[in-house]
Design a protein around this nucleic acid. Structure first.
Lengths: 353, 353
DNA sequence: CTGAAAGCGCTTACAG
DNA sequence: CTGAAAGCGCTTACAG
């Protein structure tokens, strides 16, 4: 008995009604039985279970969600799963943490283009999940506000001065400051920032974002030590492996003008190490390098990568807590902002033997 | 007007009915208008659009799916997203490919335990998606059969002699053979297989799996050149970075008895390179190494990793094609099995300058 | 302990 | 071109 106008599927799924008929009880009783047996006699229970198993019944989640008003799904939206390695680590950490709270986790990959993120969240997320954890980079505040109309949303690393939604921040400025300070302590006197665009004094109050915060951190550490941060020292590029390699080549070709490099990501550091190896420049003998993120692979490169290691578990736990507080109606006030824990890990890339 | 027994959510979502009331038309008309405007006058169209926008309406996917009988979602089940780097690459490749077919892609992470895979597929997938792409390692054929009762499923790398479901294979045996042959051509006379358990002649017809296939490939290449493959040459371990490092340490500690190492994964090769560096053993000067998978990072290690590179795009395309043929009812016959394309990439880890 | 009934939000054949 | 109605599969308060 198809609904009017519905096409027959190749294979109709088994429904509660089918199980009820087979077990000789009402659908209501089947529902009660399947959901743990409250109000159901042991004998009925047994009949129902047997029938359900025999027919291979599984709950139609669309129907349950529609009825229940909740999906028990939390979505994790990341840009790229195969960027080594921040996002895959984020997703991998978030999934079991979400499961522990009794929710299913769905990972959504949007690609690096900000437009796709909008679309992705608009699209599937419509109402297929109860909440979203979303890396906000590249979407503006209005857009974010609009997205949140439908469901609780926690942002990651949204640097907007006035937060519009709950956010978990990475320690951009502090991390950059500590890493740069470390380079100076190791004796560097000519430091550059890889992956960081120069921010002019007039733009400093206007510009917003992760890169700008890290710029500030680097600048502060240099200033503490009587050094400046000029345009020449800022080597803007995407935070990926290949750009790191290219920058290493460029630096080698102009005679390696720096003795310390703060990298905005471990992937960049990874690429730099490779690029310097191509040109016979030795890390850490000829130049010291620090990364950012704390991807696990950084422990295994040769040399291994000193890094600002984000406590991914802490980040994820905080995001989930913020989200559940909204979903469960425990908190309904102004947007809150938290900062993920981190530590600085000293490894081979920034220490001379 | 809540359904009986339903608790009020913190925030009721906007429904078709709300839009209809606001626009002064019927819900049916709103539905038609929102779905492209067939049968709807331009004036009505405009009114509806305006009302929908004003209220921030989005479709309730649970309801639509329930009505439509399809979810337009394909699920990709992987073990671990942050294992460098096969699974994240798989997921990252599959998502846009699935989107191109007009489906949403959901990535599900199960962890390395086979029990979790069952649970994951049982659980969320119930009927929230139209099809599943699933790495089968560690689940037996009966289980797989049962899982597939509910929806079309494509397996990855299921080595069961009689396929129970559509499968895309990686070229396990051929890849291992070619890599090993390459090591021999480069002059290796004492080759070991890392990550591969020894398979005795009596077990060879019985044992099933990826590892066994690769064992066979290695054995064949060695046999072609008059060499054998004994238990001593098989160093079984998980295909991860840390085990690779540990094996390197062990080999170094017993005086490095091999001059060529076939690794079952690039991650293993990655760890070996690191472990040998710890002990002053040089790759490729002292020992040649080949990997398997073709993860992008293998290009950036020092030395870079020679590898059997799986054509991930081809693998994913084949999996999606098999799946869509089932979903769309284009094919309904015996399980089909395809092999993903691949090539062997020669890099620094297996070539002496 | 069990069943009949209502309703979640949507879509579409049908009647106007 | 538009609206009233049926029904997707499920859950639960209510009546028995």
């Amino acid at each position: 008995m198809l609904p009017r106008g519905m096409k027959a599927g190749a294979k109709m799924a088994v429904t509660l009604k089918d199980v009820a008929k087979k077990a000789g009880v009402s659908p209501a009783t089947v529902s009660y039985a399947l959901r743990g047996g409250q109000y159901v006699s042991p004998a009925t229970m047994k009949k129902v279970m047997k029938a359900a198993k025999a027919l291979g019944y599984t709950t139609n989640m669309s129907a349950r969600s529609l009825r229940y008003g909740k999906t028990k799904i939390i979505e994790v939206v990341v840009h790229e799963l195969d960027i080594p390695y921040y996002y895959s680590k984020l997703a991998a950490t978030a999934v079991p943490a979400i499961n522990r709270e009794g929710y299913q986790a769905l990972v959504l990959q949007t690609g690096l283009d900000a437009g796709n993120v909008k679309e992705a969240v608009d699209g599937i997320s419509n109402q297929i999940c109860d909440g979203v954890i979303l890396n906000a980079t590249g979407i503006d505040a209005n857009e974010i506000k609009r997205l949140s109309m439908n469901r609780p949303t926690v942002l990651l690393d949204d640097c907007t001065p006035e937060p519009v939604l709950d956010t978990v921040m990475t320690p951009n400025r502090e991390g950059a400051r500590i890493a740069t300070r470390h380079l100076i302590e190791q004796g560097c006197r000519s430091v550059a920032a890889v992956g960081i665009g120069y921010v002019s004094p007039t733009a400093i109050g206007v510009q917003v974002g992760t890169s700008k915060e890290r710029f500030e951190g680097v600048r502060e550490a240099l200033a503490e030590n009587g050094m400046g941060l000029t345009e020449r020292q800022c080597l803007a590029c995407d935070w990926l492996v290949e750009p790191g390699r290219e920058i290493a080549h460029q630096l080698a070709d102009v005679g390696m003008p720096f003795d310390g490099l703060f990298c905005a990501s471990d992937s960049l550091a990874f690429g730099l190490i490779r690029g310097f190896a191509d040109r016979g420049i030795r890390v850490p003998d000829d130049v010291l390098i620090t990364g950012f993120d704390g991807i696990s692979l950084g422990e295994y490169t040769v040399p291994s990568i000193s890094t600002v290691r984000i406590d991914m578990k802490d980040l994820v736990d905080k995001a989930i807590r913020l989200l559940l507080d909204r979903i469960d109606g425990i908190y309904d006030g102004e947007p809150r902002r938290e900062v993920a824990g981190y530590d600085f890990v000293v490894r081979g890339s920034s220490t001379r033997a």
